[in-house]
Nucleic acid binder design. Sequence first.
DNA 1: GAGGAGAACTCCTCTTTATGAGTTGCGTTG
DNA 2: CAACGCAACTCATAAAGAGGAGTTCTCCTC
Lengths: 262, 262
Amino acid sequence: MAKAYERIADDLRQSIRAGELAPGDRLPSEAKLAERYRRSVPTVRDALRLLQAEGLIDKEHGRGNFVRRPRTLVQRSNLRHQWEKDRVREPEEKRAETGATEHDTGLELPDLVFHAAYREIPADKELAEAFGVAEGTTLLERTYRTRYRAESAPFTLVTSYLVRDMVAANPALLDAANEPWPGGTQNQLFTVGIEFGRIEERVTARPPTAEEAEELELPPGTAVLVLRKTSIDIDDRPVEISDVVLPGDRTEMLFTTPLERW
Amino acid sequence: MAKAYERIADDLRQSIRAGELAPGDRLPSEAKLAERYRRSVPTVRDALRLLQAEGLIDKEHGRGNFVRRPRTLVQRSNLRHQWEKDRVREPEEKRAETGATEHDTGLELPDLVFHAAYREIPADKELAEAFGVAEGTTLLERTYRTRYRAESAPFTLVTSYLVRDMVAANPALLDAANEPWPGGTQNQLFTVGIEFGRIEERVTARPPTAEEAEELELPPGTAVLVLRKTSIDIDDRPVEISDVVLPGDRTEMLFTTPLERW
DNA sequence: GAGGAGAACTCCTCTTTATGAGTTGCGTTG
DNA sequence: CAACGCAACTCATAAAGAGGAGTTCTCCTC
């Protein structure tokens, strides 16, 4: 005795997977579906809500329900960490030439940064532990959104943390007006004598919060990738921690792990 | 003029985030909430469904609605690729000694494998491209689920592909009865002279399909991490492709990228 | 004291009905 | 022929209510 709305959902899902309903197609109206399955309209709506939560359909008020088209992926590769490190020591003119978007490497980098905010905060327990400092140590917190030139919607939400005392040697970094940092964070940390040794990235996934869904303009039925990136210098000290939220339906993260030869 | 069910959801969400409702707490019954907010029960249910989709609450039939407790994460690290490669050439007794779970490295590996299936299939366009072979080339497809000893629910769904002709030199690998492969895939490929050169992992996130939700015993309001792992040998040939589905609320993937010293 | 019946409480599915609001297209009007 | 306006279609929100089913607790019986 499967539930009515589940049976309807199953049936429609199968039609979509089998390609009878192609991406972009409009489904029959809710009233028509109710008639076809001999159920009430609210029951049909329950089924459609299920499909929406799975990311299979888009509901458009006044127009209909449509099979969702897959969105194109933007790739984010860990090879770029090395590329960014190499770039730090290139002459400034050359950096300006390649700009924030690099073509040679095939790596796309975000080229628009919005709404940078800048604060000093005391480290909470979790961040203190991650940095290996005492709770309450003053941190710099920067938050911003990035967007790709070709994209209409924002692409990442970033919150970045630094230990204030570690960067204080370069007063420009304490100036909120200096956002975003020219040449990138790694470049600016280089000015205070910090060389990056490795990057650790921790990835999980979950449904977006209501705020994230709004800021990233996520349709219902999408997930977010949550990335905590810890940059560690050659003395094994964590120097920057970034929490990044990425739209799961538009992001592909590529991690390449080289293995030692025998 | 915010909608009624959204206002109710916002209010409850805030109570949860502020800690007035702690993880594990039971929310007031739907009837009570309806009374408190002066709305009908179905409207309250709409609000609760929203919170459930965000993963904030669990609905338990006959018992009530509860603030969800965060689940503990299992870490999956790319350091393990190197460790597995090193292990390939260790004497067999030593491998058996450490078993599938490794303690020294701090890396947890799944130690129970369920329901392995084994097929030969022709490569579709996408897989042919990924392997760099002609469409229709015969592939070996293996699918299985893994589970951790301490965990009640399955932990991964894996589909793994190999080009048949590349492994045919070891007839044991063509035998479906030989599942799972002793010592792991990398170990078995070593027997046909394949040495891994690097691992590429592509990660995206999305809501689970209905089947995945069931197989992984995922509560509503969770996402899955989708991982495509491509193992490439020292001659730059892709030798194994694995599609892995992981529960987003229980998985943390750790990728460490070492940077070259100056 | 143990066991079982049942009440009381919970959420679940489905129906019917009403009103609202966004979109599209057509037909009238100027 | 263009522009406007309205009708018809779409989905959205909300209500009230009936019947169902899972859980818990109490109280009665033995």
